[in-house]
Design a protein around this nucleic acid. Structure first.
Length: 304
DNA sequence: CCGCGTCAAGTTCAT
DNA sequence: ATGAACTTGACGCGG
């Protein structure tokens, strides 16, 4: 069991990622930012390792314009050594990394240009994880996409386009319920058809539940059946609603009492939990402490 | 140098 | 028909 966080590391020097706007995306800037970001990622990994944070989502911003035609840098070749050393460090630390293409990556769009871009974006993310030398338990998390007024057709489009993806992408792809369009029941139906594992997101689920009203633990059990040996340990997303904000807004920090209750109700503990929360690593450490995952630092100080 | 508007992409919903 | 929200910080322009 590991608890992790997404993309950003709060309060740690040299871990910030750089970006640029399209207008400034020259080859020189792209290379400079890429190198700076790989260095930042190493600092993040060092920090995660020291703090026993064994689950981390790498930001899609790691390579500027990673799937945009403006970026013609063959970074996976040019920085092959840096990437493979970084990957080695990640594995040595026992950290599981993943990536999560965003809301603009829509595989089931009726617009073939949009689909083409989505495929390119998946290829970019896949290439990054493969350049690190990660195996198939490093996942790419994807939402299904739009509905376009007809969900049956939209799902058929997703299935058809999924089948066109390369095996390298398919072996990493996992699908997640979202807060508007596709609930966990639909995700599981799609998951069975394509063989991609299902990620259960508790907050999305609370906002967009299916008709069948069973406990989160029951849904997690059903999702768990979609994870095979080569996919690694089942992953779920966990977040808490920010008070007095729009449904779906992530809270500033994780309230421990609520987390511990949720944790205690999990059907089994062989689960990796990705927190989606604004204070990132701080909550991840807090939750680790709450469930008895102690960092090396703490062990050292405890033994003094 | 400081502060605030803007930023690649797509879809949905509100106006 | 047009525009904001999504999620969010960081870039970078204008003063």
């Amino acid at each position: 069991m590991a608890i992790g966080y997404a993309c950003l590391t709060i309060g740690v020097p040299n871990t910030g990622l750089k970006r640029c706007i399209l207008k400034n995306a020259t080859e020189e800037n792209i290379k400079r930012i890429t190198l700076a970001n790989l260095s930042a990622l190493e600092a993040i990994i060092d920090y995660n390792s020291e703090n026993n944070l064994k689950l981390f989502r790498i930001s899609s911003d790691i390579i500027p314009f990673g799937s945009h035609p403006i970026n013609q840098v063959r970074w996976w070749e040019e920085y092959q050594d840096i990437l493979s050393q970084l990957g080695h460090k990640i594995r040595k630390a026992g950290i599981r990394v993943s990536m999560h293409p965003g809301q603009y990556t829509v595989l089931n769009s009726p617009d073939s240009k949009v689909v083409g871009n989505a495929v390119k974006d998946l290829e970019y993310h896949e290439r990054f994880l493969t350049s690190l030398g990660m195996n198939a338990n490093s996942k790419l998390v994807l939402h299904i996409g739009g509905v376009y007024g007809d969900k049956i057709t939209a799902i058929k489009t997703f299935l058809a386009n999924y089948r066109l993806l390369s095996n390298d992408i398919k072996k990493r792809l996992v699908i997640e319920n979202d807060d508007k369009n596709y609930n966990i029941e639909e995700i599981l139906q799609i998951s069975e058809k394509i063989g991609a594992p299902a990620i259960f997101d508790n907050l999305h689920h609370s906002i967009n539940p299916p008709k069948e009203d069973i406990s989160d633990a029951e849904w997690i059990i059903r999702c768990g059946k979609s994870w095979t040996e080569h996919d690694g340990v089942q992953k779920i997303h966990y977040s808490q609603q920010k008070a007095d904000a729009k449904p779906g807004s992530h809270s500033e920090t994780i309230l421990l009492e609520e987390f511990i209750k949720y944790y205690s109700e999990l059907p089994y503990k062989k689960i990796d939990i990705m927190l989606e929360v604004k204070d990132k690593n701080l909550s991840a450490i807090k939750c680790n402490n709450a469930v008895g995952i102690v960092s090396h630092k703490n062990e050292a100080s405890n033994s003094l």
